[in-house]
């Protein structure tokens, strides 16, 4: 194996594992947008909050899985509060909802900064995935077990969401609601409750991905912009409201960023935007999105 090739394989593996994280973050964003048409501008802030919940819970209990669960549950409770307290009152006014979530994001990030300070935190991975595993063709012959585990997590999230959407009653309502909200309501389904469920689920996914991200990378309060941007770009490329689109978009963006970072470091973000502009030029609705 030449060095060039092992470099390339490693970079691609970094890209795919990063894509796994992006997918989990963006899946919540795209679910919320697909059904509620709410642009949750606080999605990046919810990621940050989930990460800090994970930091604290893992520090106290020493149990990574408990941190993951706490990140999901607490942020989804916050999501419920935001939805019931603010967003449900302005249903259909999408700009106003986006503005309110921007305000919430500012507050969440600022209070996180107040409590945790500007230093970076890293959550120790669960013991099972703490070390490195030997795999062929990568630089040094070893690769972080946790980053590989992220692939499993992303697949699990995809499968779980697919099952919820396609095999449960509420999933049926969600799919119907994405196609025609008013008709679903006319059929006697309590749409408000379905909306609440989806918002809580999407927020919880953001919180959970924060715990995963803080374990694989690290967390500082100003990370929210980066993950809001990633979610936006992933769903713009993949298509709003589409789970498969989020997966494809995450793969493209994750790979493009890592390959760009390795081969043209000062232009890596630029490449991401060329891809986004290119997709929009050919398919304004995103790769798997239906035309608006």
């Amino acid at each position: 194996m030449s060095k060039d090739l092992t470099d390339f394989v490693t970079v691609c593996l970094n890209g795919v594992t990063l894509a796994a994280l992006y997918f989990i973050v963006a899946s919540g964003f795209t679910l919320i947008f697909g059904l509620l048409r709410t642009t949750n501008m606080a999605h990046g802030a919810m990621y940050v909050l989930g990460a800090y919940v994970g930091v604290s819970v893992v520090a106290i209990t020493g149990e990574w899985w408990l941190g993951l669960l706490a990140g999901f549950v607490l942020v989804s409770l916050l999501g419920i509060a935001i939805h019931l307290g603010l967003l449900a009152w302005m249903a259909g006014q999408d700009l106003r909802q986006a503005l309110v979530t921007i305000g919430i994001a500012i507050i969440i990030v600022d209070l996180s900064l107040a409590h945790y300070g500007g230093v970076a935190y890293l959550i120790p991975p669960p013991e099972l995935f703490a070390g490195a595993v030997s795999i062929p063709w990568v630089v040094g012959g070893q690769y972080s077990a946790f980053r590989l585990f992220m692939l499993v997590l992303a697949a699990a999230v995809y499968l779980a969401l697919w099952l919820i959407l396609n095999r449960t009653r509420i999933g049926m309502y969600i799919r119907a609601g994405i196609d025609d909200r008013d008709m679903l309501s006319a059929l006697g389904v309590n749409v408000a409750r379905v909306f609440l469920f989806v918002f809580a689920l999407g927020a919880g996914l953001a919180g959970m991905s924060g715990v995963i991200g803080a374990t694989a990378l690290s967390i500082t309060p100003n990370e929210d912009g980066w993950f809001l941007l990633s979610s936006l770009v992933v769903v713009i490329v993949g298509g709003m409201g589409s789970l498969g689109g989020a997966a494809i978009g995450a793969l493209i963006i994750g790979l493009a960023q890592q390959i760009g970072l390795f081969y043209a470091p000062t232009y890596s973000i630029f490449i991401t935007f060329v891809i986004m502009a290119g997709v929009l030029a050919v398919r304004p609705q995103g790769l798997l999105g239906k035309p608006a």
Binding site: F33, D179, D180, G241, A292
Partner: peptide, 9 residues
Amino acid sequence: PGSTGIGNS
């Protein structure tokens, strides 16, 4: 104006 064709694949 109402949900317009942003669908789940």
